[in-house]
Each structure stands twice: as structure tokens, then as C-alpha cells.
């Protein structure tokens, strides 16, 4: 399955919907989208990974790259993910300490609202 990307802005939070496989072939498209969003002034990003079937270290690299870019603007990049096979990759690499990971978009929005 290829990678499908979509995004919308709710309040100050830009929600990026990702569906499919994020690997060495498709990750550049996600990278371009994140860079484009930051360049257009969207510094609070929430990446919804619930429909991601596959994620490798190339995809992790893109997410870390996005996090670095938003942090340069005092922004945030957080994730929605409950799939064990995806969470496992974050745990193996220690990135659970780097990203805020939420169980749902609503939960992330609520936490984000409290931070404002």
C-alpha cells in the first residue's frame, strides 16, 4: 500500500493524517509535507499514525526532522498511535521519550489546549 497524506488545521493545531506505509520510498513525501507546513507557519503539528501499516527508521528520521523544525519555532510535533507494532519501533529506538504520544486525536487536542 502506498502512502496517503492529508492535513487540516483545527484551532492552532495542524493535524496530519497518514495512511499506509512510511519507508525509504515514501518517507520523502511526508518530509516534504512537514517542511511545507512549517514553512507556512504551522508550528504545532499532530501526526495521526492510526492508519499507518508500516514504519521504519527512515520514517522515524522524518518525524525527528519535523520535530527539530517545529522546535526551532517553539512549536510541537506530537503523535497519535495505539498500534503496538508501531509503538514498538519508538520504544526500541528510545523515541518514546522524545515524542508526545496520545491514544486519540481528541486526547492530544485536549492536552494541547491545556498547554496553551
Amino acid at each position: 500500500m502506498d502512502l496517503k497524506l492529508d492535513h487540516r488545521t483545527e484551532d492552532r493545531l495542524t493535524i496530519v493524517e497518514v495512511e499506509g506505509e512510511i519507508d525509504v520510498y515514501t518517507a520523502p513525501r511526508l518530509r516534504e509535507l512537514l517542511i511545507d507546513l512549517v514553512n507556512k507557519g504551522n508550528f504545532h503539528l499532530l501526526v495521526n499514525m492510526e492508519k499507518v501499516d508500516f514504519l521504519d527508521s527512515t520514517g522515524l528520521g522524518v518525524l525527528v526532522g519535523g520535530l527539530k523544525r517545529v522546535r526551532a519555532h517553539d512549536g510541537s510535533l506530537e503523535l497519535v498511535c495505539t498500534q503496538e507494532r508501531i509503538l514498538k519501533i519508538f520504544r526500541i529506538t528510545g523515541l518514546t521519550k522524545v515524542f508526545g504520544i496520545y491514544a486519540s486525536v481528541d486526547e492530544a487536542k485536549e492536552a494541547h489546549g491545556k498547554d496553551k
Binding site: 528520521g61 520535530l67 521519550k97 522524545v98
Partner: peptide, 19 residues
């Protein structure tokens, strides 16, 4: 050791072996 400052898209290739 994990340090966000040293992480970059290309550095992450080293994570492949760790994974």
C-alpha cells in the same frame, strides 16, 4: 545515546541497525 540535537534525517540511518 539519544540526543535530539545530534539527530537528523540522515543520522537516523544508523538507527536501522539498532532496530
Amino acid at each position: 545515546p539519544l540526543d535530539l540535537g545530534m539527530l537528523s534525517d540522515s543520522f537516523m540511518s544508523g538507527f536501522g541497525i539498532a532496530v
